[in-house]
């Protein structure tokens, strides 16, 4: 197996990683890039815990091979904080008490971030649809939706 070199933008910084091609993006980010906010849950695209944004679009990183993100721009939770300040969404998750065990939180925040980047004032139904690919097994959905509502200024 030949190693591959992957160059991409990770949280606004260009990086180049040499790695084995039989790695998924979730493994690449966690093992080679120290982005441990990216959680592995079900490993089959059902739970959304491993959600990252590729060119502003939410995807489940357990369903992508490392080599597929060549040239792309990746955003993980680590990249959300700007100049030591939490993102508005992160603050609203804290204020709404939208975090229980926390395992689904990075994916939830990123799916919500992708929504707000495209649609700054979504309706409640649009929020529910945008988060429909993220499961919270503590079932804390009400507060999670409330947090996104708060960040959207609803």
């Amino acid at each position: 197996m030949d190693k591959i070199k992957i160059s991409f933008i990770l949280n606004d910084k260009p990086v180049t990683v040499e790695t084995n091609p039989n790695k998924r993006v979730v493994d690449l980010l966690r093992e080679d890039c120290e982005c441990t906010s990216v959680k592995e849950g079900c490993s089959e695209g059902e739970c959304g815990a491993c959600t990252v944004l590729v060119n502003g679009t939410p995807v489940t990183s357990c369903l992508m091979l490392a080599g597929q993100i060549e040239g792309d721009s990746i955003l993980t939770l680590e990249g959300l904080m700007k100049d030591g300040e939490l993102d508005k969404l992160q603050t609203s998750f804290v204020e709404a008490g939208a975090v229980q065990c926390g395992y689904c939180t990075p994916g939830m925040v990123l799916s919500a971030k992708a929504l707000l980047m495209k649609n700054p004032h979504p309706t409640h139904e649009e929020i529910r649809r945008a988060l429909s690919g993220n499961l919270c097994r503590c079932t804390g959905y009400t507060k999670i939706f409330k947090a996104v509502d708060m960040a959207a200024g609803n």
Partner: peptide
């Protein structure tokens, strides 16, 4: 051949599929 990967990556991860090479046509 891998395009989006939503089916193929699971088959590879769960070792249901044996392959010499993966051709990523996604670009």
């Amino acid at each position: 051949v891998i395009a989006g990967g939503t089916d193929v990556v699971i088959e590879l991860t769960e070792r249901q599929r044996d392959t010499d090479c993966v051709i990523n046509i996604n670009k």
